[in-house]
Amino acid sequence: MMTRLMTATAVLALATPALADTAERRIALSNNYAGNSWRQAMLESWEKVTGQAVADGVVAEAPAFTTAENQATEQAAQIQNMILEGYDAIVVNAASPTALNGAVKEACDAGIVVVSFDGIVTEPCAYRIAVDFQEMGRKQVEYLSGRLPEGGNLLEIRGLAGVFVDDEISAGIHAGVEQFPQFSIAGSVHGDWAQDVAQRAVAGILPSLPDDIVGVVTQGGDGYGAAQAFAAAGREMPIIVMGNRQDELLWWKEQRDASGYETMSVSIAPGVSTLAFWVAQQVLDGQTVPQDLIVPFLEIQQDGLDAALEATPEGGVANVEYSLEDAQAVIAGASN
């Protein structure tokens, strides 16, 4: 029995070649900015997961580098230095989708695997782990349609005007409203992804809105501010979709405990850097990986609230670190 178990383990070990083939490989993270809580959490996740991977002998080394200033030219130089240092793969969160293409091409030509995530690069030889922001917007309306089958008026809080992410999420929300025509968007304000701005903006538009606002669709970082504005105006609290920020989750929990308030929360986990790490590892391992992958969202539902809040540091963002299996699932999902 014992020997059979051991043979089984040995066979299993052989069946997962990921551990052996990349043990000598080195993967570097090129990051353009570290000045907010999301990026800090992203770097921490990278350190945690890659530290474990190095200890387990999956890869030889996986250091993270951040440019001192958020500038594309500086990051291009950083990537060229990484080529010189002979890394086998470079994982990039890029300062610009296009301005690094020259350096990325140099890396590809040198036989280096380049995986971009969050801030992706357009150079075709690189792998991209992109966020489907439109789906993030559409999903919110879908959730509301489940909660409020009869529909009603929605308030939309947008992000920073002129930024690509804002346009994408908003387009998704409007697509959602088209899909569920029982909803209509009664008003829309720019909250700049900041609670204080969102609070001021919502307080400003509330008097001009009809009384029956049933839901608020958001972009993250603005749900708490919106709730404060509704409370201050003495209005009935609509269903506000949250964005995984700690203050939003805390407010949600307080409301749930007080009055049974129900909503959901969705955003991108900073731990997506670890997904990029595993994707790079899989490519180095010789697996076939599609050039374009989609980041899964981190959704928090009513029953997962307590656990999510507990794991989120004060002032931070809910996070999740990805494992090799998660990466394989994402790759398999994109291959089909």
């Binding site: 594309a72 690094l100 293409n101 020259g102």
Partner: peptide, 17 residues
Amino acid sequence: ALVGLTTSADANIALRY
């Protein structure tokens, strides 16, 4: 020369210069 190296441009590409 910068565009020749990066192969495409960005309005903020050379702020540091």
